[in-house]
């Protein structure tokens, strides 16, 4: 049984499982998501998606349908309401229907999975979304990705299978910048990205998940998904996006080795990019600063230490405090954005 979490724990990574699932299924094109729960669960998350998408100037909201559970369904069972919502979803003729359970649906024990197994004209995927079972936002992302994997048997192949990107943080403000940083690094090895599992991905592409020889996870926390992809399709897995300056170089080496490409020329080229980057921030050299380790993501902290060292900056308790990004800086591009943030902080002091 799942025990109670600390009531003071409000960190984002431990947030709502349903929101985590929606941050994946909401980015599947030609898919409809059914939220099996009270209408408020759908409304709250639709508002959140709307706000997050507006920040990145994306106006196309995903199609969300609520089974609108009320007290009547709580007492008598909500499977009828879910079946009705599924009928409505199917009438929209999507390529895929995702069904997410909410806390109340799992509390009353509705058999969502059984309803999703009933034959329809399009695949219907059940994704557990009840947060009271112990998961948070990240668990929701994992649940969604894991539930979508069986849509591919591994037999369907595309002619142009690039490197698969897995589990991008779709609600992250810098999601696209981080993706383009990975593309840039791949391009140094003459490689292309393939399926983005899942970001602006046609639902029909789920059948091709087994095509990519290599998959890059957004972050190591997705290792379960990585293992499942590896076991299911034999795909080689890179455990996370590159973090910080050294991460970019390690990333190039790892990818090169997996593809049997000599990575040395690409590494040299990236080292040059890094040299140019640090040269452009030479005004920060020798400054005494302070980085607050409490509550910081260890990967962000490690990247910051590497940057301090590269720029000959000194750390002291009395130094100027510098901000760390919520998510670790991805590659050289992320490092550059972090340095700009530091420069702004210093110039304001």
């Amino acid at each position: 049984m799942i025990s109670k979490h600390s009531p003071t724990d409000i960190s984002r990574s431990e947030g709502c499982t349903l929101t985590g699932v929606l941050s994946v299924t909401g980015f599947l094109e030609d898919a409809v998501t059914v939220i099996h729960g009270p209408s408020g669960c759908a409304h709250h998350n639709a508002s959140l998606l709307h706000a997050s998408l507006a920040e990145i100037d994306a106006a196309d909201l995903p199609v969300l349908i609520s089974s609108s559970l009320s007290e009547e369904e709580v007492i008598f069972g909500g499977e009828g309401a879910l079946a009705h919502a599924l009928d409505i979803a199917a009438s929209l003729d999507p390529d895929l229907i995702c069904v997410i359970s909410t806390c109340i649906a799992d509390t009353i024990g509705d058999d969502c999975a059984a309803l999703c197994r009933q034959k329809r004209e399009m695949p219907v995927v059940y994704i557990p979304g009840a947060g009271f079972l112990g998961g948070g936002f990240s668990e929701g992302i994992r649940n969604a990705l894991m539930s979508l994997l069986p849509l591919s048997s591994g037999a369907d192949q595309t002619d142009d299978a690039g490197v698969m990107i897995v589990g991008e943080k779709n609600l992250e403000y810098e999601a696209e910048e981080n993706f383009y940083e990975v593309i840039r690094l791949l391009s140094l090895l003459d490689l292309n990205p393939g399926i983005r599992f899942v970001r602006r991905m046609p639902a029909s592409d789920c059948t091709y998940l087994g095509s990519a020889p290599v998959a890059i996870l957004r972050e190591p926390a997705l290792h379960q998904v990585g293992s499942a992809i590896q076991d299911r399709f034999g795909t080689s897995i890179i455990q996370g996006f590159p973090i910080g300056p050294s991460g970019s170089l390690d990333f190039i080496r790892s990818i090169g080795n997996l593809y049997g490409i000599d990575p040395v020329p690409a590494v040299r080229e990236e080292e040059g990019v890094l040299d140019d980057l640090f040269a452009s921030f030479c005004d920060l050299r020798g400054l005494t600063v302070r980085i607050e380790p409490a509550g910081a993501n260890p990967a962000s902290l490690e990247a910051a230490q590497a940057i301090l060292q590269a720029l000959g900056m000194k750390e002291s308790a009395s130094g100027m405090p510098l901000p760390l990004p919520f998510d670790p800086p991805v590659g050289t591009g992320g490092t550059k954005r972090m340095l700009h943030a530091w420069r702004r902080q210093i110039s304001r002091a």
Binding site: V74, I75, F76, G77, G78, I108, G109
Partner: peptide, 16 residues
């Protein structure tokens, strides 16, 4: 009253 056996939440039914 309450739900059919095996579905829903009879306890909530008592409260209602």
């Amino acid at each position: 009253g309450g739900p059919d056996p095996g579905v829903g939440c009879a306890g909530r039914g008592i409260i209602a």
